[in-house]
């Protein structure tokens, strides 16, 4: 493993065990405390939508960095109002951090550790952005027209 968690949030990391999507959906919705769940590239993030209020951590796995499905999963979750930790894990490389942040990830568990300083620099790669996403950044078209 040897993974190091890079985290861009103030709250404490949840102690809840990270369940697979299948186990999570089968678990008791009335149980105490917020849950943690892991989704893989082929799993539908929308299956979590009815449960977002009781989830503290969603881990989105990237078995290979070239498989970009997790970017859509992340945006969908944030677009639907999920505010808990959204963690990218696995084959997460420094050159992807900036786009991942734009899609709503706020924590990273890369299989190969990334130094915090280098990560912060990578996240700040783009001075401006063309698209409105879920990261709250004002896109270029909005700045142009004072929106």
């Amino acid at each position: 493993m040897g993974e190091t968690l890079l985290r861009y949030r103030e709250d404490a990391v949840t102690g809840a065990p990270v369940l697979s999507l299948e186990d999570f959906l089968a678990s008791d919705p009335m149980s105490n405390g917020a849950a943690a769940v892991r989704i893989t590239p082929g799993e539908d993030a929308r299956a979590l939508l009815p449960h977002l209020g009781r989830i503290a951590l969603i881990e989105v796995t990237f078995p290979a960095y070239t498989d970009g499905r997790g970017y859509s999963s992340a945006r969908i979750l944030r677009e639907q109002g999920y505010t808990g930790e959204l963690r990218a894990s696995g084959d997460v490389l420094i050159d992807q951090l900036s786009h991942m942040c734009r899609c709503g990830f706020d924590a990273f568990a890369p299989a190969k550790p990334i130094a915090a300083g280098a990560a912060a620099k990578a996240v700040a790669t783009w001075p401006e952005v063309y698209q409105k996403t879920v990261d709250g950044r004002s896109p270029i078209w909005a700045k142009r027209h004072g929106l």
């Binding site: 970009g68 970017y71 945006r75 992807q96 063309y130």
Partner: peptide
């Protein structure tokens, strides 16, 4: 350009 969701299609 630099669309963050569609860079690894």
């Amino acid at each position: 350009t630099f669309h963050p969701e569609f860079d690894y299609l």
